[in-house]
């Protein structure tokens, strides 16, 4: 059995020495074609006014929700204060 590590290394070395098959200059007209496509696509689309409004509304709604939760936190905690927190408390709570 061959040492395939060495086989791979020799193949890679030989491949590295292979002559470049094609030139590295841009083919004739390439830059014109690319730039024409880019300009035809127009500037990067920005959000429409409705989309912008929707995004802002979403952020505002999240903020209102957080403020409401913070404001009513004490009331919510008081609501559940009388309820059992541990299994032992639950058993005691349910026992007649």
């Amino acid at each position: 059995m061959n040492d395939h590590n060495e086989t791979w290394n020799r193949l890679a070395r030989a491949a590295r020495r292979a002559p470049a098959e094609q030139p590295a200059e841009a083919p004739f007209g390439f830059s014109h074609r690319v730039v024409a496509r880019w300009l035809a696509a127009g500037p990067q689309p920005r959000l429409s006014p409705w989309e912008l409004l929707a995004v802002r509304s979403l952020g505002l709604a999240a903020l209102v929700m957080l403020v409401s939760l913070a404001a009513s936190f004490n009331a919510v905690r008081a609501q559940f204060a009388s309820e059992p927190a541990t299994p032992a408390e639950l058993v005691a709570y349910l026992e007649p």
């Binding site: 086989t7 030989a14 491949a15 020495r17 292979a18 098959e21």
Partner: peptide
């Protein structure tokens, strides 16, 4: 022929076999 030489001998492939080596490497 090129891969056979690499598998059976210790010597480096001939420089003229570079393109064949490149093709084998690409397929691997």
């Amino acid at each position: 022929e090129m891969l056979d030489a690499v598998l059976t001998s210790e010597s480096e492939p001939h420089p003229a076999q570079g393109l064949a080596a490149k093709e084998i490497v690409t397929r691997l």
